[in-house]
Design a binder for these strands. Structure first.
Length: 803
DNA sequence: GGGTCGAGGCTTTTT
DNA sequence: GCCTCGACCC
């Protein structure tokens, strides 16, 4: 079959802009893809279309994403669209592709063939070890900060020699960076930043290699371009080549309004730079939204219009207005959570009765979003008490759990005895009589001898030395024994002989850990089958129309196989034919893909997550909670312009997750860091359009029973004036009449302010209220601050909290 | 070598 | 308020 470029069935159902993006010529282009505008569909259809129309072979495509999830999604959709093996295609995460590249060119990159990857935990312990060794004052140079410094340098493409140190402290950090690099090189390990940086440098410095890849990748597609950092953009430029010298074309897809990762080095500015540097002629905006009703979209549009310097974009939909955005004000975080649970129950009841408009069918279609993880606890408590199943995103991933890291450390030592980070992790775990003293001795010896710790054990004398030698001998024996065994056998043998299982059996709460360790065996097993280890890794040839040339039925993979072959790592390098041991490949996999974070995925449950974690997801019903000054926008971000704009984008992301229903809630008091805080409602409320919103008055009934101790708070809308629960005591308090003007009382959040009361001001600190004058919005308080003297503060403006 | 206790910290997160 | 890490003691 032959498809002419513009009648391909692939284009069916696409709107004009989407179709235009899919069928762009081979030239640099920027797609501004709004939330819910079918971005992934465009990306995958573009790739499929290019291949189907014979413009490129699978090998000529490079498609890069940020997460494994996105990469997998792309491959799955792709193989559903086209019967072509995706095996030879370079589709993956930045780090996954860099890993693939470095595995193929390990010699040129000056790495050992089976170099291992340090995750953030490993990196931190490597830096701690280094700091100790060089007697670094870790008060002055906390390892965490050093790690951020190093990662930041690498994100900017800077080696130690490139960093301009401004003061002695800076110089020290650069020195540590240099020492750290030397340590990693010696031990044959690379961190995440190093994967990127070294790939970039190799492309930059090796002309023939770079030219090879430039010729090869005719089409470079970048997902979430607004999240790229400086180095990632530079890496892309190496592959695409200079503007006028042909080579691959970059199709950058992104949304500047959804850029929420500045804190980890993302540069929205890359979008504008790209347009300028490559003189991008093709820019397409995808503004048609297929997700939400217009009340939700209008709210999002209106909010984000308060940001300056946007590339400019307005989402629209053909769906109707839908439900109003509901806003709820609560006296306490506890009551906020209670209200939410009641609302959820009602939604689910309506859903059960088949009311598709007002109800929600599944719990998993309800998401609770919050700005920071600390907020989840009170919500979890409420859900738990209501016996409502829920699932919290975030937290430890499978491959990050301590017991798994221990097992992996053993496996890494089998692969590479020089890996001191792994050595340190398990040399005395399970305990085998090797204390801190002996380890210190060993470190000194290894440094003096200039060799790995495992090669220096004979230098330690006495019983400790004997224990150390025994440990190394044990690892050596294991390495010997596992020769020629398959991955499953290796791991089982290791779990047995390392003593890990025995150790956890003796522990009171070790059962979960043992189960996880057994799960590791399963993970390895499915890794082996999914990666298709031992199979021919060469992509199937296709003809000029993108159809597979294979006539032999066995050579045509089934659809299932296509999906399975889609995994990003190859053990047999398709380009060089070099092989990596299954063990080394599995360890790489474990480092690059940290796995799911929670196992309880099976049950239909309410979804709890941070706003960040919600990016890319969608739900029928979304609750955005804790809409308060200091929380959202977060206090650490609300004082500078860029920070506030990013908070607003974050809010934009949060709003656009909702399909049908959106709730915003804020609480007048909140328990945070062990203190009750009095928060004003978020400024973002002022930036939302009135016509989409509906302020809900707290209904008395549901709470009167649930919270007898706080009933008086619900007496009327100004129940807030009553401070019966102001101290946050959980003990029951008999309802008291609302005090009527016991003192010159103001309405609103500072009602508790009266003379004699200790208050806290974010700028002036703690102080005592001397006097109060005025009522309502005009109310002012005279406060004596020990450090700043006496001040008159307008209560409607000053953020005073009770001490 | 392991358990207990106290201090400090505490946005967001993927690879 | 809660968790992590490190110091200190048995």
């Amino acid at each position: 079959m032959h498809f002419s470029p513009d009648t391909s069935p692939l284009l069916q159902g696409l709107n004009n802009e989407q179709a235009a993006a899919v069928t762009l010529p081979q030239a640099h282009a920027l797609i501004l893809a709004g939330a819910g505008s079918g971005k992934t569909r465009v990306l995958t259809t573009r790739i499929a279309w290019l291949m189907q129309t014979g413009q490129v072979s699978p090998g000529g495509i490079l498609a890069v994403t940020f997460t494994n999830k996105a990469a997998k999604e792309m491959l799955t959709r792709l193989s559903a669209m086209l019967p072509v093996s995706v095996r030879g295609m370079w589709v993956g995460t930045f780090h996954g592709l860099c890993n693939r590249f470095l595995r193929a060119h390990w010699k040129l990159a000056n790495l050992p063939q089976s170099f291992q990857i340090l995750d953030t935990q490993d990196q931190l312990s490597a830096i701690k070890r280094l700091s100790k060794q060089f007697n670094v004052d870790d008060e002055r140079f906390p390892p965490k900060e050093t790690m951020r410094f190093i990662a930041g340098c690498k994100e900017d493409g800077l080696r130690p020699k490139d960093v301009v140190a401004r003061d002695p402290d800076d110089r020290k950090r650069v020195e540590l960076y240099e020492l750290y690099e030397a340590q990693c090189q010696r031990e044959g390990v690379v961190d995440f930043g190093e994967l990127m940086l070294r790939s970039y440098e190799l492309l930059r410095d090796n002309d023939p290699l770079r030219e090879h890849y430039r010729r090869r990748f005719q089409h470079i597609l970048v997902d979430e371009f607004q999240d790229t950092n400086k180095l990632q953009y530079a890496w892309l430029k190496q592959l695409a080549g200079p503007v006028d010298q042909g080579g691959g074309a970059i199709l950058a897809v992104g949304d500047d309004d959804q850029s929420i990762y500045a804190f980890r080095g993302a540069r929205v500015g890359n979008m504008a730079d790209f347009v300028r540097e490559y003189n991008v002629m093709h820019q397409i905006k995808l503004e048609q939204n297929y997700r939400s009703f217009s009340n939700i979209l209008d709210s999002a549009n209106h909010l984000i219009s308060h940001n300056k310097g946007r590339l400019g974009k307005n989402l629209h939909t053909t769906q109707g207005a839908g439900e109003p955005v509901r806003v709820y004000e609560s006296p306490t975080d506890f009551a906020e959570a209670q209200w939410m649970v009641e609302e959820m129950k009602q939604l689910l009841r309506d859903g059960q009765n088949g009311d598709g408009t007002n109800g929600v069918q599944h719990r998993s279609e309800i998401a609770v979003l919050y700005r920071s993880n600390a907020q989840s606890r009170v919500i979890e408590t409420a859900l738990f008490n209501a016996a409502m199943p829920y699932r919290v995103y975030g937290g430890l991933r499978f491959f990050e759990r301590a017991e798994i890291k221990h097992a992996l450390a053993y496996l890494r030592l089998l692969e590479n005895p020089r890996d001191d980070t792994s050595f340190m992790r398990v040399v005395n775990f399970p305990p085998r009589g090797i204390g801190a003293r002996s380890i210190e001795q060993l470190q000194d010896a290894s440094r003096a001898m200039g060799c790995a710790m495992s090669d220096a054990v004979t230098a330690v004398a006495g019983k400790a030395g004997a224990n150390l030698s025994a440990f190394v001998a044990k690892i050596d024996v294991l390495r010997e024994q596992t020769q020629g065994q398959n991955l499953r056998q290796i791991i089982e043998l290791l779990l047995d002989h390392s003593g890990l299982i025995t150790h956890y059996q003796a522990e009171r709460e070790g059962q979960d850990r043992i189960e996880n360790l057994q799960e590791l065996v399963n993970a390895a097993e499915s890794f082996v089958t999914q990666e298709g280890f031992g199979r021919d890794a060469v992509a199937l040839p296709i003809d000029e129309h993108g159809q597979p040339l294979a006539t032999d039925a066995t050579a045509m993979p089934s659809e299932g196989e296509l999906t399975r072959q889609a995994a990003p790592q190859t053990m047999i390098n398709a380009d060089t034919g070099e092989t990596l041991s299954p063990l080394a490949a599995f360890l790489t996999h474990a480092a690059l893909e940290s796995g799911d974070n929670q196992a309880q995925a099976g049950q239909d449950a309410i979804q709890l997550m941070t706003v960040h974690a919600s990016k890319g997801l969608e739900f029928d019903c979304v609750f955005i909670t804790g809409m308060e000054e200091g929380l959202f926008p977060h206090e650490n971000s609300m004082n500078d312009f860029d920070g506030l704009e990013e908070e607003r984008r974050l809010m934009y992301v949060a709003i656009t997750r909702a399909r049908k229903r959106l709730y915003l809630s804020h609480s007048q008091t909140r328990m945070l860091h062990g203190q009750t805080r009095y928060n004003l409602k978020s400024r973002f409320f002022e930036e939302l359009p009135e016509h989409t919103m509906k302020w809900i008055t707290p209904a008395r009934s549901a709470f009167a029973d649930a919270m007898p101790s706080r009933r008086d708070a619900w007496q009327n809308n100004n129940g807030w004036q009553n401070n019966a629960w102001g101290g946050g005591a959980a003990t029951a308090v008999a309802p008291k009449p609302v005090p009527q003007r016991a003192a010159p009382v103001t309405s609103g959040p500072n009602a508790w302010v009266r003379s004699g009361v200790q208050v806290f001001h974010t700028k002036f600190g703690e102080g005592a209220v001397i006097s109060i004058e005025g009522v309502g919005d005009d109310a002012r308080a005279q406060v004596n601050f020990p450090r700043h003297g006496t001040k008159w503060l307008a209560l409607s403006v000053a953020k005073l909290t009770q001490v």
